[in-house]
């Protein structure tokens, strides 16, 4: 069984190279976490008093405006940041997909990059070797996989990275937004793989601004605001509160078809399972 428990967790970033004085002036800024100034080193309280628990089968969407702490929360849930106050426990192998470019080496071939990325995501070399063909087919990169990555276009890099991360079997999948930047034909293909990946994973936390993807992948949601949890609950409830309108009212016809709902679906169906 996989699970993540976070209790009264704070994530405070020390900012060593900033002058305390100049930061003090910015304390009142609306965007970003609260900046504490009690200590000599200025501290950004990126997350405050987070308490949540994720169990096997959970599909959690993270919403909130820029700088509300979504990415930091994902890092907290992945174990990259351990809470500075409070506590957390992660049971299960976490596959974080935050930045598709990370761990990609420009000078080595696509194949080699697939290997390294896979190893980082907790796969073994043998498991990755089995998946290489599948990834090659999905990415449509063909002989390009032999080329060093610096010969790739931005879109090709994203394809490669998406190919790798969607080929693994994650126990806990953490997805950050920004899985875009590919042409739309490929995105449809990627979307299907993404959905498959989510189905395979034991638990999902997904930070996104795209309602349609959230509705497709998630069942519940957390609304972050200035570093603390403003609301937790079912996806529709939270999205309605966050956007100020029912998300089902504004989704496109195509997306509605994919989700298998009619736009007049009453609250409570279509997204619970």
């Amino acid at each position: 069984m996989v699970s993540i428990d976070v209790r009264n967790a704070y994530v405070d970033f020390p900012i060593f190279d900033a002058k305390t004085r100049s930061l003090k002036k910015k304390v009142l800024g609306k965007v970003g976490g609260k900046i504490g100034t009690e200590s000599k080193v200025p501290i950004i309280e990126a997350l405050q008093d987070i308490t949540m628990s994720i169990r096997e089968g959970d599909r959690v969407g993270l919403v909130g405006h820029n700088g509300s702490g979504k990415s930091t929360l994902l890092r907290l849930l992945s174990g990259i940041y351990e809470p500075t106050r409070g506590s957390s426990r992660i049971v299960g192998r976490v596959a974080p997909v935050f930045d598709l470019g990370i761990g990609m080496d420009n000078e080595i071939s696509g194949y080699e990059n697939i290997m390294i990325r896979g190893l980082y995501l907790g796969m073994t070399r043998k498991q990755m070797q089995k998946r290489v063909d599948d990834i090659a087919e999905f990415t449509e990169l063909g002989n390009y996989l032999q080329m060093p990555l610096r010969a790739y276009s931005t879109g090709m890099r994203v394809r490669l990275a998406l190919g790798v991360v969607t080929s693994i079997n994650p126990e806990i999948l953490l997805l950050d937004e920004g899985i875009g930047a590919v042409d739309s034909a490929f995105m449809n293909k990627a979307r299907n793989r993404l959905v498959d990946l989510v189905k395979r994973s034991g638990a999902l936390v997904f930070a996104s601004h795209q309602d349609e993807l959230l509705l497709e992948l998630c069942t519940s949601a957390v609304w972050l605001d200035e570093g603390h949890v403003r609301q937790q609950g079912s996806l529709r409830e939270v999205l309605t509160a966050y956007k100020g309108k029912d998300p089902y009212e504004s989704i496109g016809a195509e997306a509605a078809k994919r989700l298998g709902i009619r736009s007049s679906t009453p609250v409570g169906s279509g997204y619970t399972s």
Partner: peptide
């Protein structure tokens, strides 16, 4: 399915004897 449950934050935390289990400390 009740997906996200808020842990017992209203209960006073007693050292060593929290029913839902104390989470391991980072340090």
């Amino acid at each position: 399915m009740h997906t996200i449950s808020t842990l017992t934050s209203d209960q006073p935390e007693e050292p060593g004897a929290v029913p839902s289990g104390r989470l391991p400390a980072s340090r």
